[in-house]
Design a protein around this nucleic acid. Structure first.
Lengths: 149, 149
DNA sequence: AACTAAAACTTGCAATTTACAACTATAGGT
DNA sequence: ACCTATAGTTGTAAATTGCAAGTTTTAGTT
């Protein structure tokens, strides 16, 4: 377990499974991809399609269709940008917002449980570490830069 | 950025993109799902199909076909278990091992670069934190337990 | 003003991936 | 011998994806 990649791989796999699991809990039943979409739209301020697609590492063409189905489910709203009529900005509907909130709640509930196996100090250290690591990843010149907040 | 889920979500997204990126680098060109398969088979000692499928959170039926294509690509080997003839154990071929090694190398190279933006102390803290967090996740009674090493 | 190139997004279509149900074969208990 | 459970595979239909080609709008050039 000295291999850094190993550590991160395990962690992200577990977290990914949690994400998947939280999609079909408490009345909401959406796919993992859709959950990521809601999360990312929620997080940003009226993002364009391109912006979100790039953040998620998804082909724009695929993304376009994913958005369409979320619109049909009445979770996402697509508004023409008055400044540039090629662009559409995305936002969550009231219902989309509610579902995103429920997922977030469940995720944090789970994380709380995980943190309950640590001391308060350890928890703080872990959170600071993740934050630090995210910042370092942001500085990296290599791949994965687009995910920046 | 005080939301724990946010921190982990960003990190895992970035790491996921890195994983994806590393699939198509240096002569190897496989899908992300295939990379995960190789990784997990490599990590375990002659695992059964069920075992790996469960670790990855994949339907066994889907998994069965994924393995088939990796066998066709001559990256994975499937051996009948002498003790229980219902079971097949999985292992990497020489070529599969090489590709898994290359991906691992690239991932660690990238992580090295990320760590170069931190002090040695911070790096150690981050690695210990991730390890600690993984252990805590392992203790959790809720979902995602199967991923245990 | 007309022309051209590029950007943002969508659609057609073919190929891959996936999921559920039904199947085979082996194991294990009674 | 019989019944049930487990490991894995296959059929088939549906969902996801990716590339190429399309539309519309913007911006730069002459």
């Amino acid at each position: 377990m000295e291999n850094p990649r190993e550590l991160f791989q395990i962690m992200t796999r577990r977290f990914g499974l949690l994400n998947k699991y939280c999609c079909s809990v408490g009345g909401c039943d959406i796919s993992l991809a859709q959950s990521h979409l809601l999360y990312e739209i929620d997080r940003r301020h009226k993002p364009s399609m391109q912006e979100v697609a790039e953040a998620l590492g998804t082909e724009v063409t695929t993304f376009s269709r994913q958005v369409q189905s979320l619109i049909q489910m009445n979770l996402v709203k697509k508004t023409p940008d008055p400044n540039d009529r090629r662009v559409y900005t995305l936002s969550l509907t009231a219902e989309g917002n509610m579902i995103a909130g429920m997922i977030d709640q469940q995720m944090n509930d789970y994380l709380d449980e995980v943190f309950s196996y640590m001391t308060e100090f350890e928890k703080e250290t872990v959170l600071r570490s993740v934050k630090l690591f995210n910042e370092a990843m942001g500085k990296s010149s290599r791949c994965c830069a687009p995910v920046t907040g």
